[in-house]
């Protein structure tokens, strides 16, 4: 269906018009975040709303980096998210491989239980987890957060990894095993390289999940030394004031690692999210 040039122009405009609206809606909050973070304090609380400040200032960034624990929170978040991403992905890859390749007793029950864990809102389990972690010394500790995030990520990550393994024909391992490899070697040398997109996608998923998590981070860790950055952001909101400038600056800084992370894995990610969508 081609239609006259006029009709085609209208279709084209509609097509890109909708896309444009979507992109604007998606990026506007980010834009506002950046804008406020660059607005000097004295023009922040004026009545007029400007799309861009008359003068740009990095004073909020200086405040955040120089006069707060932000770098500490930042370090904590990197540690927690990084370790969570790696641990969840490794464990999920192992479990996903088993679900994909082996038939064993209790397989369906394990899958069922894993699904059930995904059905509860996290709020329900906070109290029990707090009372279990307290005596174990896992409150106010990064290890505690890593354990929780990893545990909560594993079921979904496992299903994700399983679907990636399902997309790889089992003849490849069989061929490798006949060629003289053990199953483990076949997994490492043949299957793992082919699962890189899946591993990247799973890692990205776990990393961002842990990076932005606030509920557990807030309730389990009250000491500044073990706070992650979402908790740190809250410190700019006190009973008396909300320090929008530093808060937004910290927010922009917090976006950077996620952006860098996704920049690094995006090549695999696009492959990974579309793998198996079409045959061939």
């Amino acid at each position: 269906m081609r239609g006259s040039p006029r009709v085609r122009l209208i279709k084209w405009s509609l097509h890109y018009g909708v896309l444009f609206l979507f992109v604007v809606a998606a990026l506007f909050p980010l834009y506002w975040l950046v804008k406020i973070s660059l607005t000097p304090n004295d023009s922040l609380y004026t009545h007029s709303i400007d799309l861009w400040p008359a003068t740009i200032s990095l004073e909020h960034y200086a405040t955040v980096i120089g006069n707060s624990d932000f770098l500490l929170f930042f370090r904590n978040s990197i540690i927690v998210s990084g370790v969570t991403a790696i641990a969840s992905t490794l464990l999920a890859a192992a479990a996903g491989y088993a679900f994909s390749r082996f038939v064993f007793r209790g397989r369906y029950w394990i899958v069922g239980v894993m699904l059930v864990t995904q059905m509860f809102p996290l709020v329900i389990v906070i109290t029990p987890i707090f009372s279990i972690f307290g005596p174990l010394g896992l409150t106010n500790s990064l290890t505690g957060l890593i354990i929780i995030y990893t545990a909560f990520n594993i079921p979904f990550a496992t299903f994700l990894m399983q679907s990636f393994f399902d997309g790889i024909p089992k003849e490849l391992e069989e061929a490798a095993m006949i060629d003289g490899a053990t199953r483990f070697k076949a997994l490492l040398q043949i299957i793992a390289p082919l699962t890189l997109p899946g591993i990247a996608a799973t890692m990205g998923f776990c990393f961002t999940g842990a990076w932005g998590e606030i509920l557990f981070a807030l309730l389990l860790n009250s000491a500044a030394s073990t706070s992650t950055f979402p908790v740190g952001l809250l410190l700019y909101s006190t009973r008396a004031t909300i320090e929008f400038g530093p808060m937004m600056a910290a927010g922009v800084l917090a976006l950077l690692p996620v952006c860098i992370f996704f920049f690094l894995i995006q090549r695999y990610l696009v492959q990974g999210l579309t793998a198996g969508a079409v045959k061939g």
């Binding site: 024909p169 490899a181 082919l194």
Partner: peptide, 20 residues
Amino acid sequence: LPPRDRDIAMVFQSYALYPH
């Protein structure tokens, strides 16, 4: 014996070539 110790070679229908 596991496949690797049987000293055989196999050609699969799907060829099962290592894609990478």
